[in-house]
């Protein structure tokens, strides 16, 4: 095992340690609320596992800066306009279209130039993968729903048994 693999995987091992701590709390604790806490830690750590997968070196959050969005939009429009004028340059990259805006001067010249620059810059931006984030947004909500349901059950059990300690409850049941 080289240092490189360790450097590339340490974060996963960390996440595994966290997951297993949560899992241990669920398995070992006899207090019902404590089990729910363990479940929470376990699930939160799984969210971390997913989020680590999506990360790219030197990446940034998958939010496209407004300037670039604007540029691409106007590039679109100018492209449409250019096509109507018969000056269409097909097969060109977005950046060229952006540049086309500037040359054409049809749209506000300054803005177009700025947009062209932004689009050039856009080629260099690396975005992290948005999909794990989306999945985890769903999972977080599922997690809180489970927690809420579990806690409602705990309240109900406490009403019926007068305790939230699992062993006490089992003793009470045997005593019946």
């Amino acid at each position: 095992m080289t240092l490189e693999t360790i450097a590339g995987l340490y974060n996963y091992w960390m996440v595994i340690f966290l997951m297993m701590t949560g899992f241990y709390i669920v398995l070992a604790r006899k207090n019902l609320i404590k089990s729910v806490i363990g479940l929470n830690i376990f699930q939160t750590s799984v969210f971390l596992l997913y989020i680590t997968m999506g990360k790219v070196n030197n990446g940034t959050a998958p939010i496209i800066p407004p300037a670039i969005v604007e540029a691409q939009k106007s590039a679109h429009e100018s492209h449409a306009g250019a096509a109507a004028g018969g000056v269409a340059e097909h097969g060109a990259g977005v950046a060229e279209h952006g540049a086309g805006v500037a040359e054409h001067g049809a749209v506000v010249a300054e803005h177009g130039a700025g947009a062209a620059e932004a689009v050039h810059a856009a080629g260099d931006i690396v975005y992290s993968n948005p999909l794990p984030s989306v999945l985890m947004l769903t999972a977080i909500v599922v997690g809180i729903a489970t927690t809420a349901l579990a806690l409602a059950l705990v309240v109900r059990i406490r009403e019926d048994y007068g305790t939230v300690d699992e062993e006490r409850i089992l003793e009470l049941d045997r005593g019946e």
């Binding site: 969210f47 990446g59 959050a61 998958p62 984030s133 947004l137 909500v141």
Partner: peptide, 12 residues
Amino acid sequence: MMILDAPDVAFT
């Protein structure tokens, strides 16, 4: 999560 480029998840 914020450091891992997932601000949406971090907020949530």
